[in-house]
Structure formats: structure tokens, C-alpha cells
Computed example of a mutant assay.
Amino acid sequence: MLHGDAVETLENWTAPDAEQEKLRQHYLQHLAQHPDGMWRSCRPEHITASALVVDASGSRILLTLHKTVGRWLQLGGHCEQGDTTLAGAALRESTEESGLPDLTIAPAPLQLSRHQILAGGCAGTFHLDVQFLVTATAATKYVVSEESHDLAWFPIDALPTDTDPTVQHLATKARHHLTTTARPS
């Protein structure tokens, strides 16, 4: 079910540029060749789901100082057996890692990011991350999970200097998306 949803999500997603289209095609090829391509056990690559959480005003984003990576990242991670959709996996990860209630996820990905994991249990593999935009309700009091050293809200246009470049790019896309389309309700 999750594998089929991932294929459908990626087939229906219109990539915003040639680089993202190349990644979209790569992800679809990966899924066509690997029935287990959604799971962390699939090597050397597997699909992951993450989310950039914005507050209700769209002016701040919630980032995690990831324990393993040691950098400010968006929330997200591996798909699990109970996940039925990619968006659902990203929403589950966001909720688990933030403790925020009533998060709302945009149905279509915001961007794709293929990156090599250099530490932890997936060292040496590539995450084929499908990144979504999630909006927090008025509640912004988070809970730091065991996967994080810290969580913090940052202005969407003033991220910490040690923020991963991929996250900086994701924030730029989110800011553009929020100013050109209605946020999910």
C-alpha cells in the first residue's frame, strides 16, 4: 500500500525544475526496481519522508538539532510498517519528533532530496527523501524527542548558520510556496 502510494505521489507530482524532475525519475526507477524500496533495509538507497513544519503565520519553521547528524534539520525519517501514505509518514514523523498536536500536511511534496547518510545505522546509504510542508496550529509548544539534542522555532528567512544547505533550500521553497499559494487549512 505505501509503495503504491509513493509511486502515485511521485507520478502525479509536477517537478518545479529539471533537477527535481531528474530526482523524481530516479525515485520512480528505484521504486520500480525495489519492491522493498520504502524500507531502511533496502540498500544502497531507500525512500524517506520528512516535513518542514511552519507555524500558523508561515513566518517561522521548527527545526531539530539532530542527535546523530549534529545539524539543524527538518523533521522526518524512515517509513514504518504501519504507514499507508508518504504524506502520512511525514506527518507521523513530525508529530512524534515535535509533540505538536493538530498538524496539517500539504498533500503534494515540496521538494525531493537525495543525500548520503554518513553516520548512524544507515551510514553509507542514500536517503531518497520526499519533503512535505506541514503547518502547525496556534499551538507551538514542542517537546524535544530522544532523536534530538534540541528543537527550536526560527524565522523562515533567518536560519542558524549551521543549518544544513538542503534545509536552507527547503525553507526558500516553502517561503515561495507560502507567498504564492494558500497554506493548507
Rank of each mutant, 00 (worst) to 15 (best):
E8P: 00
T9V: 14
E11P: 00
N12M: 09
N12F: 03
E21W: 05
E21Y: 02
L23Y: 06
H26D: 11
H30Y: 04
Q33N: 13
G37D: 07
C42I: 02
C42Q: 14
E45Y: 02
A49G: 02
S50L: 00
A51D: 00
L52M: 12
S57V: 11
T64E: 13
G70Q: 13
R71L: 15
W72Y: 12
L73M: 14
G77P: 01
H78K: 02
C79G: 03
E80G: 01
A87V: 13
G88I: 08
A89L: 01
A89T: 00
A90F: 01
L103W: 05
P109G: 07
P109A: 09
Q111R: 10
I117E: 15
L118F: 10
A119K: 15
G124D: 11
T125Y: 03
H127N: 10
Q131H: 00
L133F: 08
A136M: 04
A138L: 12
S145K: 02
E147G: 09
W153C: 08
T161E: 15
D162T: 10
T163R: 05
P165G: 06
P165K: 09
V167H: 01
L170F: 06
A171L: 09
A174S: 13
A174G: 09
L178H: 08
T180R: 14
T181F: 12
T181Y: 13
P184Y: 10
S185R: 14
